[in-house]
Simulated assay, not measured.
Amino acid sequence: MNRLAIYCGSASPEDSRYIELARDVGATLAQRGIGVVYGGGRLGLMGALANGALNAGGEVIGVIPEALVGGEVANTDCTRLHVVASMHERKQAFTDLSDGFVTLPGGVGTMDELWEAVSWAQLGYHTKPVGLLNAFGFYDGLIAFNTHMASVGFVRPAHRGILIVEQELDPLLARMAAYEPHRPIFAMKKEEL
Score class of each variant (00 low, 15 high):
2 N>F: 07
2 N>M: 11
4 L>F: 09
5 A>P: 07
6 I>N: 00
7 Y>W: 13
8 C>I: 02
10 S>V: 05
12 S>C: 12
15 D>G: 13
16 S>H: 13
17 R>F: 13
17 R>E: 15
18 Y>C: 07
19 I>P: 09
20 E>A: 15
21 L>A: 02
21 L>R: 04
22 A>V: 12
22 A>G: 04
23 R>N: 14
26 G>V: 13
27 A>M: 05
33 G>A: 08
36 V>W: 02
38 Y>R: 00
41 G>Y: 04
41 G>I: 02
43 L>S: 11
45 L>V: 03
45 L>R: 00
47 G>P: 03
48 A>E: 14
48 A>C: 06
49 L>T: 04
49 L>S: 02
49 L>N: 00
50 A>Y: 00
51 N>A: 10
52 G>M: 05
52 G>S: 10
56 A>R: 05
58 G>H: 04
58 G>P: 00
61 I>V: 13
61 I>A: 03
62 G>S: 10
63 V>I: 08
63 V>S: 01
63 V>N: 01
64 I>D: 11
64 I>V: 08
66 E>T: 01
66 E>H: 01
66 E>M: 04
68 L>A: 11
68 L>T: 01
68 L>R: 15
68 L>H: 11
70 G>W: 03
70 G>A: 13
70 G>Q: 13
71 G>D: 14
73 V>P: 01
73 V>K: 14
74 A>G: 13
75 N>I: 08
76 T>M: 06
76 T>K: 02
79 T>H: 13
80 R>D: 06
81 L>M: 14
81 L>H: 00
82 H>N: 07
83 V>H: 04
83 V>N: 03
84 V>T: 08
84 V>A: 12
85 A>L: 08
87 M>C: 03
89 E>Q: 12
94 F>L: 02
95 T>K: 02
95 T>N: 06
97 L>F: 04
97 L>V: 02
98 S>E: 00
98 S>P: 11
99 D>E: 13
99 D>C: 05
102 V>P: 03
103 T>C: 15
105 P>S: 11
105 P>F: 08
110 T>F: 08
111 M>H: 12
112 D>W: 09
113 E>L: 02
113 E>C: 04
115 W>G: 01
115 W>H: 10
118 V>D: 07
121 A>Q: 07
121 A>P: 03
123 L>D: 15
123 L>V: 15
124 G>R: 15
125 Y>G: 05
129 P>L: 01
129 P>V: 05
130 V>K: 00
132 L>C: 09
132 L>N: 11
134 N>H: 00
136 F>T: 02
138 F>A: 05
138 F>K: 00
140 D>Y: 07
140 D>Q: 11
141 G>E: 09
141 G>R: 15
142 L>H: 06
143 I>S: 03
143 I>R: 02
146 N>P: 00
147 T>K: 10
148 H>S: 08
148 H>M: 11
152 V>R: 15
155 V>R: 02
156 R>Q: 10
158 A>H: 07
158 A>K: 05
158 A>I: 07
158 A>S: 09
159 H>C: 09
161 G>T: 10
162 I>L: 12
164 I>T: 07
169 L>E: 14
171 P>M: 12
172 L>V: 12
177 A>H: 13
180 E>G: 06
180 E>I: 11
181 P>I: 06
183 R>V: 10
185 I>G: 04
186 F>E: 15
186 F>P: 01
187 A>Y: 04
191 E>N: 09
191 E>S: 09
191 E>M: 06
193 L>F: 05
193 L>I: 05
